[in-house]
């Protein structure tokens, strides 16, 4: 387990060094997108329209923050990750089109996303679910917000962050997926549990 401090834009070379179980902290720009923003971003790509921000080398954050507005300024009050599997249906295309290098969320992602991360050079950084203040304190400012018509949780928030983490590298760019490994072990443990409970399988 190694610890890395990365600055955006992050290069493919830096990403390829990372292995599952490493811990990373990110400084620079991270951009939120949940279900609706993913869907819209991919529609934009299909129509050849540019996104409000160039995501190349940045980190994508599965997050619908609690925000408040003070005057003209938005402040992130709480900003933990949301469940990433919901974005599995979009993420391979998203990585391919927009070249994000780190996808931050909770709960992990599936085979299709893992393959895309290996192909295009990206990692999945698991942020502790619910640790919303830990996240909010690393957000130094909200640079802007796009697509607010989707509602505040689903809008695209552009955060300037400092040492955002700890993020556990749970999918690396070499095809390793910590969540799928744990799932495999859980399957193996099922029999032992059934035996302990006196259940037939």
């Amino acid at each position: 387990m190694a610890i890395y401090h990365l600055k955006t834009p992050i290069s493919e070379e830096e990403i390829r060094k990372l292995k599952v179980n490493d811990v990373i902290f990110i400084t620079g720009t991270i951009v939120t997108a949940r279900d609706q923003a993913h869907r819209r971003a991919l529609e934009y790509a299909k129509q050849g329209k540019n996104l409000p921000i160039n995501l190349d080398g940045l980190a994508l954050f599965h997050c619908g923050p609690v925000v408040k507005k003070e005057g003209e300024k938005w402040i992130a009050v709480a900003a933990g990750p949301t469940t990433s599997t919901r974005m599995d249906i979009f993420e391979d295309e998203f990585i391919k089109n927009f070249k994000v290098r780190v996808v931050i969320g909770k709960g992990g992602m599936g085979k299709k996303t893992t393959d895309a991360m290996a192909k295009y050079g990206a990692v999945y950084g698991a942020f502790t679910g619910g640790a919303a203040i830990l996240a909010a304190k690393a957000i130094k400012s909200i640079k802007s917000v796009e697509w607010l018509d989707l509602g505040t949780p689903e809008a695209m928030w552009i955060f300037e962050v400092e040492d955002f983490g700890p993020l556990a590298v749970a999918i690396d760019s070499h095809g390793n997926n910590l969540f799928l490994d744990v799932q495999k072990k859980v399957e193996e443990n099922r029999q032992k549990i059934y035996e302990k409970l006196g259940l037939s399988s």
Binding site: M1, N21, V23, C63, G64, P65, V66, V77, A78, A79, G80, T82, T128, G129, G130, A131, A132, I133, L134, A135, A136, K137, P166, A168, L178
Partner: peptide, 27 residues
């Protein structure tokens, strides 16, 4: 070790939420 990292982040977060009077989780 990874499990402990997660629980540590949870405990730190609980303290920060109390200190800053902010919701523990954004959801």
């Amino acid at each position: 070790e990874t499990g402990r990292t997660q629980l540590k982040a949870i405990l730190d977060n609980i303290e920060l939420a109390e200190k800053y009077q902010a919701p523990i989780c954004q959801d």
